[in-house]
Design a protein around this nucleic acid. Structure first.
Lengths: 210, 210, 210, 210
DNA sequence: AATGAATGAGCTTTCATTCAT
DNA sequence: CATGAATGAAAGCTCATTCAT
């Protein structure tokens, strides 16, 4: 109990514990008591180092988000073929989620439902959406397909949503293989995206009957 | 206050109030006091009619889910063209979400983050996924495309995820037109789906390089 | 424990308990737990009826101040002789303090040291000071003594201070007789005041030597 | 921070800091953390040198009281005229309070409201009261007025109370001139006192009607 | 049927105080 | 000598839930 550890170490222990507990219990049900206990430290230390429960949660959020972004960025090495780039990104993404299931739960399940963190989360997501939109755009340029700029973001939004949904599912299924999930996602997305980027558009046959 | 109303009516009032408050505040932050107040009724009545806070929430969940399913079912009249069927389903879905934003928030934002309701929610979602999978399968059959049964469910899962993601976004943007959102969704989904169902498959060029 | 009492009764019980505990322990050291216990009721009731600890304290303050003012007002019946009026006021004042020692402690010891209540208290005191200043002025008029208006307030301030000081002392000495204290006060004040109002003024012989 | 200073110096720094913080925040709200920080020293040092929070507060109290007594004593040089003596004492007193507003706040506002320090404070005040009573007595002797010994203390008590009240007010009004306050006090007190010492006594006309 | 009154239990947060280095 | 690290203990406040009327 009296192991005097340097601050940085303790902070990581606490964040680990917090992510675990937040993921297991949900933000509100999680108690600072349990977090401290799991971290193997007394409550006041948590407050001293990481502040309020809200602040602690945001700290978790940021750490996990940063790690995720870094993992994906490390996965996406610029290569010639845009589909390969996307594929690498997706693999990295799902691999990360598979390896950090708790972190993902905190990130995309808890954070989303707490009004206080909406802002923080929206920012993170916006960054990701823009990355994806960039990938789409460069893919489009590579394929010499004319496209309207605004649509990339909208498409990216839907794709990110689909990926999140699969990731959520992955987080809850221990047995599932991340690469398999990534392949699945790639299939949905890419085949559709390619057609779309080639100019195919679906349109309701007759005008809206309403 | 002393209006002796038949039980069924009272229950609906309470559920209306509960959905509103849960959506506005989130499950934990919502207080039984406020719900009772918004329902214009005293707290013990809420307990007498709808039980515990958890039970009350589940009741909300079920009512909203049922309504949603019914709305979608009413939208999807069996017609010849499978894309049309999907389109009708999506329109009904987004129209419902657009018209019942509060209900949607309760359903997919609050319920998802509270571990206690995961089971309930998973069941609902599974039902929807199976409906969508059924649509895909019949579409596939209509196009005389050979397909492996298990994949329909997986595809359906991703599509549902994408739809949820868009619905979530719709719920937060008052100005957005549900039909517009439905069209967007249809484009992503259908164009990709059609190709997939025709047998196009994306596959990593070389074996996983990692 | 389950004696269902009407709200008004309970509120008075609580205020009684609060005044007692605040007086005994001081504002900070007093705990809501102890107040509730002394009131013979559970903590949440205190919060439900009287609000926050701060608000509870202000409620005590107001009740005691009101009672004090009323007691004094009831004592000072307008009579011909201004010294008699003052004397009656002082008697009523010290009698009240003697009978409500706890209330006085809350009022003038606790309230004064807590920055949050300075405003509230200043208002009360200002009202008293003005009453006293009025007495002085009418006495002055009755004695046909010319006086500068601003000075009444300043004099009143000092007199009120002296009275408070004596009252404080009275509050701490169970054995002391309020009437005796009042007589003492009257002697200091009146004899001095009378001379002052007659125009006697003390002035430093030579200029300030500093 | 690592300036190895002799113990006495350090202690003064700490007391300075403590007085400042106690005055600014009040006894309870003041935290040892803040005191240590303001003193530019680590918390354990404070404990090592000056002990517990209570002990620290008492130390402040004593230092300030001693300084005050010394300042007043230095002001009151024995001269022939007793009013001059009193005047000098008052001037010194208010000058000190004006110059050490923080100290005064600690002394007479905080200490008075904390039950734990009542004893300490009562002792200090008793010493002052006796000094004043001594002045009164010698003045009385000089004027060859017969007086009952016990009354000097009682009178002194009231005068000290009035002075404290004015000092309190002075402590809160930066712009006020101490000498002005002293003059005011002198007027109230002396004119009344002189008459009293000459044997004038106010007495209720008829017996107490209660 | 309907409600004001009542509470047990729990949570976040803060602080004085002390080790171990 | 000096301090960062660590904690026990308590306080304010809230809430779901239930009686008694």
């Amino acid at each position: 109990m009296l192991k005097r550890l340097p601050r940085v170490v303790r902070e990581q222990q606490m964040l680990d514990a917090a992510v675990k507990v937040f993921a297991r219990r949900g933000f509100h049900t999680a108690s600072m008591d349990e977090i401290a206990e799991v971290a193997g430290i007394s409550k006041p230390m948590v407050y001293a180092y990481l502040g309020t429960k809200d602040e602690l949660f945001v700290a978790c959020l940021r750490r996990e988000a940063t790690r995720l972004m870094e993992a994906v960025a490390a996965g996406v090495r610029p290569t010639a073929r845009p589909d390969e780039q996307l594929w690498n990104g997706l693999r990295a993404f799902f691999a990360f989620v598979g390896a950090h299931r708790d972190g993902w739960r905190v990130l995309y399940r808890q954070a989303r439902s707490e009004p206080q963190f909406t802002g923080e989360l929206a920012g993170m997501r916006a960054r990701i959406v823009e990355v994806v939109a960039g990938l789409l755009e460069s893919a489009c340029a590579a394929a010499a397909v004319p496209a309207r700029p605004g649509d990339f973001t909208a498409m990216a939004y839907a794709y990110v949503g689909a990926a999140e949904s699969l990731a959520d599912w992955l987080a809850d299924h221990e047995e599932e293989d991340p690469d398999h999930t990534a392949t699945r996602m790639m299939n949905f997305v890419w085949v559709g995206a390619e057609s779309l980027l080639r100019g195919r558009i679906w349109r309701a046959q007759e005008g809206p009957s309403r």
